[in-house]
């Protein structure tokens, strides 16, 4: 579900199942000038990503049906998505460490709204 979609706006995906957290991410990205789309089910993520090909993705690690790690590996194996920036959002957890090379940045939860907004702005 696309909240906002203007012609020249870059597209950002938020893949997160917690609606409160998702709302904050979406708000930060929108403030940074992105059109946003939320996916709250891991199983649907790859299909949507392939269809919409966003320039930025905020990906949660713990998701229903398919984990963030699975999605990350799948999309990194997809040449058509090579230019896509992926920010991994996770609670302070070692599990994210080995994914550092696959992601562009690891955000430790709780993620600062201001920090994400500034970061997204820089990545435009």
């Amino acid at each position: 579900m696309t909240e906002q979609a203007a012609g020249d706006q870059p597209l950002a995906f938020v893949i997160e199942d917690d609606p409160k957290q998702a709302a904050i991410f979406l708000q930060a990205l929108q403030m940074a000038g992105y059109a946003t789309e939320l996916v709250n089910d891991g199983g649907l993520a790859l299909e949507r990503l392939l269809a919409a090909r966003p320039s930025l993705v905020v990906l949660d690690l713990q998701l229903p049906n398919a984990s963030g790690e699975t999605i990350l590996r799948q999309l990194r194996a997809e040449p058509s998505l090579a230019a896509m920036r992926v920010l991994l959002a996770t609670a302070q957890d070692r599990r994210a460490e080995h994914l550092r090379a696959l992601s562009d940045l690891i955000l430790l939860k709780p993620v600062s709204f201001v920090q994400l907004r500034d970061l997204a702005l820089r990545l435009r």
Binding site: K20, Q21, I24, K109, P110, V111, S112, F113, V114, R117
Partner: peptide, 12 residues
Amino acid sequence: GAILGNTEMLQV
């Protein structure tokens, strides 16, 4: 996290 995010949103 919710407190932090929402407070930041209020502030900006």
